[in-house]
């Protein structure tokens, strides 16, 4: 029973991580690696506000989410937008993003140090018993919040003006510009929403398992794996991808040992890339653009 419980918890966190990442990938069409730093920043901002500036938690969390969303939007304005205007390809944007990730992660290490920081209050409790398995309060909160954010985001994408614009830009940026949608603005919105979502995920993870400056990268990559399995722009695909990843990892942990969880995730990724070599771009060979 405990394993089912863990799978559900991890699945929900993966779902939020991959949704936040795919929202950005969906509109801007490149791998925003520095997204991992946004996740870490959110956790450290919570630490900053709640511990170092001793704000109450109900105030610290929204502040941290806001600031982390600001980090994501700043990256878009200051880095990706100028690069896009110069005609950068998805690969160039990805490497720039890799550089940005290195910079941001080291800024975090420099400001807060490399050791583990905690925002948890009180001592660690065993958790509640729930159908013969244990689950902590924070994990229950995480599941509720993540499901809420996921559904909220799906509704937002489907019915709101911003959501419709994001989908328009994702399907055809030039055409959207022609009908009067400012694609840069829309991508900025996508960065804001995506960064806010991953910030929520980062804070919830920090409350569950504390924080280190390098924590973001593996969560980001799990999100990417779930997105590649599920497909970009498909919400049910993300659900399926996150569920498959969480289940496979926990079954592997159960049968061959938990140290192989990472390897399993990437073996799945590589298998999916083999089956669908170019993800969603549909290109098979590199061709010069004129």
């Amino acid at each position: 029973m405990q394993i089912v419980n863990n799978i559900i918890y991890i699945f929900i966190v993966y779902l939020l991580a991959s949704q936040s990442f795919s929202l950005i990938y969906y509109s801007a069409r490149f791998f925003h690696i520095a997204h991992a730093a946004t996740l870490t920043f959110a956790a450290y901002f919570t630490f900053l506000f709640s511990r170092q500036l001793s704000c109450p938690v109900w105030l610290a969390v929204p502040l941290a989410v806001g600031w982390a969303a600001g980090v994501g939007m700043l990256a878009e304005i200051a880095l990706y937008r100028p690069l896009r205007r110069r005609g950068a390809s998805a690969m160039v944007l990805m490497i720039a993003s890799l550089g940005l990730y290195v910079v941001l992660q080291n800024v975090i290490s420099m400001v807060w140090g490399d050791d583990t920081k905690s925002v948890r209050t009180g001592e660690i409790r065993v958790g509640r018993e729930f159908f013969g398995a244990y689950i902590t309060d924070i994990q229950i909160t995480t599941i509720v919040v993540c499901v809420g954010l996921f559904v909220g985001c799906v509704v937002l994408m489907k019915y709101s003006r911003i959501g419709r614009n994001i989908r328009a830009v994702a399907s055809n940026p030039e055409l959207s510009n022609i009908v009067g949608i400012d694609s840069d603005r829309v991508i900025l919105w996508a960065f804001g929403i995506g960064s806010g979502l991953v910030a929520a995920a980062g804070i919830l993870i920090a409350f569950d398992t504390d924080m280190r400056p390098t924590m973001g990268f593996s969560w980001l990559l799990y999100g990417v794996v779930a997105m590649i399995i599920g497909g970009v722009g498909s919400n049910w695909g993300l659900v399926g991808g996150a569920l498959l990843l969480a289940t496979a990892q926990h079954l592997a942990a159960y049968y061959i040992g938990s140290q192989w969880m990472d390897a399993v995730a990437y073996v799945i990724l590589i298998l999916f890339l083999m089956a669908r070599p170019l993800g969603f771009s549909g290109k098979r060979l590199k061709k010069i653009e004129i």
Binding site: F30, F31, A90, M94, D262, I270, L273, P277, L278, K286
Partner: peptide, 23 residues
């Protein structure tokens, strides 16, 4: 395996391989 992909997907694929080798 990896050369079935190009550009950014190739990078992601090699990233996966790096993690598997490290693991």
């Amino acid at each position: 395996i990896a050369l079935r992909t190009i550009d950014d997907y190739f990078i992601i694929c090699t990233l996966g391989i790096q993690v598997v080798v490290f693991s």
